[in-house]
Design a binder for these strands. Structure first.
Lengths: 197, 197
DNA sequence: TAAAAACATTGATGCAGATCAAAAAACATC
DNA sequence: GATGTTTTTTGATCTGCATCAATGTTTTTA
């Protein structure tokens, strides 16, 4: 728990995130921050395997992580890719407490801040503001999914790629074609062709 | 406001819904129920037009309603179809308060119970339990969208139809092919062919 | 730094489901 | 209950993207 003292910059991003999203006094922020434990992981680390119960929520301090699942045929489908300053978990599993269909892994060497599900729920009970924070988190997740469905249903593969390039070019710069393809719901081959115009 | 007295059975379903989803005392339920105003509408009524701000949330007491949007080419895409005992609105618009991209209309002659956005937010301020209720509503909406994405991305048109037939046959019994097709994200022609095996 | 593994590119082919079109059926309206 | 309107069915054709296959490139690891 003193680990955060060893890395004084370790929770600066999280602090900013809470200031933006949690309507509470500073000392409560501080208390909450201590519930987030630093975790340094290497690229490729699996944070949540298929069938495990999802008992953590991660804040990405440095690097990136993703939530994904497999189709029957074994193809990967990436649900969400979280960069610095974003929160990630298998939200479905976190909500339900059931064994998770979705997996979480790390796409670059990363520094995360981890809060346990039980501490998260404890905060929910303790601070009404944390309830509000949770509602915001859910609203964001809902709107995000809504947009994704809309894009899947109304845009072609090429249009989805062009939109991502326009709105979030860092996805295209930082991610491998394999990951990017699974995020855009196209095959690697199609993405490769799209990239070369 | 005495309208609910004229229809003593009018809020029985809503009462049951609150008992299941709102962890509060009975008298609070009663108070909340009075904030839901009955509204009888004919098939085809538009409850929320494109570009309007979404200032209502509807509970379906009898009949059914849907949330949908239009593609560039003018095709309808149905986001959610709510039958008896379900809640519907343009959740995106309700959350953001911005002019809504999505529309809401009524698919059968229906009896709804309506709460205004301002009353809803007032309850959020007043009762912590209503915060919890709202979180549950958002969780449900998130899980619903998550499932929908999964189905879009992993199943063929025929598999999606078969799954709906298995899990929710009333959709297929009650809805026209046109609506059903827009819900399953296929054309009417394809749906017609799927139905005839 | 060499061998293996993972990933990316390019070409050829196939197919699910869209689109176009037109007839048939169901529904609504006077 | 006849007539217009919307919905459904059926057929023919087209196409975007997947799939299969093979080669080239980068990354990992020992």
């Amino acid at each position: 728990m003193q680990k955060s003292l060893l890395k004084p910059t370790g929770s600066a991003l999280l602090r900013k995130y809470l200031q933006r999203n949690l309507n509470s006094a500073e000392d409560i922020h501080q208390e909450i921050i201590t519930l987030f434990k630093p975790l340094t992981v290497k690229k490729g680390t699996v944070l949540l395997a298929h069938g495990e119960t999802c008992d953590k929520l991660y804040f990405v301090n440095q690097g990136c992580a993703r939530c994904f699942y497999l189709t029957e045929q074994g193809a990967e489908k990436s649900r969400l890719i979280a960069f610095e300053g974003m929160v990630i978990t298998s939200l479905g599993g976190f909500i339900s407490g059931l064994p998770s269909f979705e997996m979480v892994d790390v796409l670059e060497n990363s520094e995360l801040l981890t809060i346990s599900r039980s501490n998260f729920y404890h905060l929910l009970q303790t601070y009404p503001e944390w309830q509000q924070f949770y509602a915001k988190l859910l609203e964001f997740a809902y709107l995000y999914q809504n947009k994704k469905i809309e894009e899947l249903v109304t845009l072609s593969a090429g249009e989805r790629y062009a939109l991502l390039l326009k709105e979030s070019p860092h996805y295209i710069k930082r991610l491998s074609n394999k990951i990017l393809a699974s995020y855009l719901d196209v095959t690697q081959e199609t993405l490769s062709r799209l990239k070369s115009r």
